[in-house]
Simulated scan of single mutants.
Amino acid sequence: MTTADRLPHWLTRVGVFDLETTGVDVRNDRIVTAHVGVLDRHGREIAARDWLADPGIPIPDGAAAVHGISTEYARANGRPASEVVSEISGALSMLFAQGLPIVAYNASYDFSLLANEAVRHGLPALHAPHPVIDPLLIDKNYDRYRRGKRTLTVVAEHYAVPLDDAHEAAADAVAAGRVALAQARQFLLPETVHELHTQQIGWARDQAASLTEYFIKVGRLEPEETLDGSWPVRG
């Protein structure tokens, strides 16, 4: 049996999805670049599409330093945000309709920001995307006591997945998909992707509750505050 043959039967193809944005606020920040693709069971990308948007607001210098897209470049070369948001949502909906799970690292960030962008532009939003695979949640659940950061760059290296252009939407999306495939070979995942999706909802809730308790203990949150553990779209 080869390594690829040890994948779950439902993991023969996966969609991959990533956004680069103006910031980390899922309610108010905007999409700058996006990538949606499809990987086969060997991690080869067999379909892909990229977008560059004019977000309609200035891109902060800090965000531009991360993904390399300046306000001037986005205004000169990006397409209207409403068109980009509509097409990204449509591409994801098409993959879900085909029965493909979609991998997104820290999925509640990308799917929440996309949903809020859709509402902003008066477009149908993906309020309950399904099924989604989040390698960050899987890593935290199956290897919870490993020390160190859990950024995509660090986690990709842990699973021996190359990531040469971190914070570039296509590179991050493909790397996240390959990390998910590596995890599926290493860990005993549920019998179906729908069961995995449901379990991740609980993992996200539990991880948020644990982090809330820690932040209150160290003074980063007030006792009455809580972190939103909704997944894959934050409430």
Rank of each mutant, 00 (worst) to 15 (best):
N106I: 05
I59Q: 09
A204L: 00
V161Q: 06
A47W: 13
V193G: 02
V218D: 15
E168A: 00
R220S: 13
P101N: 07
D228G: 11
Q199E: 14
P8I: 08
L19T: 13
R13M: 11
A81D: 05
L19V: 09
L123K: 12
A171G: 09
I69K: 06
H127E: 13
A63V: 00
T198L: 11
G62Q: 09
R13H: 11
G122I: 06
E20Q: 15
D54R: 05
D29Q: 07
I31Y: 05
V233R: 12
E117K: 07
A209E: 10
T71K: 03
H130P: 00
T12F: 04
V218E: 14
S112W: 10
G68Y: 07
P101R: 03
L221P: 13
E225N: 06
V155S: 10
G235V: 14
V132W: 00
T226F: 09
Y214P: 04
V155K: 08
Q183L: 01
L126Y: 12
Q199G: 03
D40R: 07
Y159T: 08
L19D: 14
R144I: 07
V154H: 09
R13V: 08
I201P: 00
A180P: 10
L137W: 03
D143I: 09
E20Y: 08
D29E: 07
D110S: 14
P8N: 08
N106L: 03
R150G: 06
I216T: 13
D134K: 03
R79W: 00
S70C: 04
T21P: 11
G235I: 15
E168N: 05
L123M: 10
V233K: 14
G37M: 06
T198E: 09
D164H: 13
P232T: 03
L100D: 02
L52S: 03
A81L: 08
V24F: 14
N28T: 12
D29I: 05
P135I: 00
R41H: 08
V16R: 02
G219Q: 12
D61V: 10
G235D: 15
P80A: 03
A176E: 07
V32I: 12
N116D: 10
L114I: 10
L152V: 03
T2M: 01
E72G: 02
R79H: 03
F215Y: 14
F215V: 01
L100R: 02
A4G: 00
A47F: 07
Y105R: 04
L136T: 01
M94N: 15
I31E: 05
Q200K: 01
S70H: 07
G202W: 03
G148D: 10
P131K: 01
E83C: 02
G99H: 05
D5M: 08
P60F: 13
P55I: 05
A65V: 00
I133E: 01
R185E: 12
T22Q: 12
T226S: 15
Y159D: 07
R75F: 06
T192L: 04
G219M: 13
I102Q: 02
A176F: 09
T22K: 14
T12V: 11
A204V: 06
V26T: 15
G148P: 09
S210L: 11
A47H: 08
E157H: 07
T71I: 02
A171H: 13
I46G: 08
L52K: 02
F17E: 01
H121S: 04
R75S: 11
G99Y: 01
V103L: 04
A209Q: 05
L189A: 10
I201S: 01
D110W: 12
D110G: 15
Y109D: 15
E87T: 07
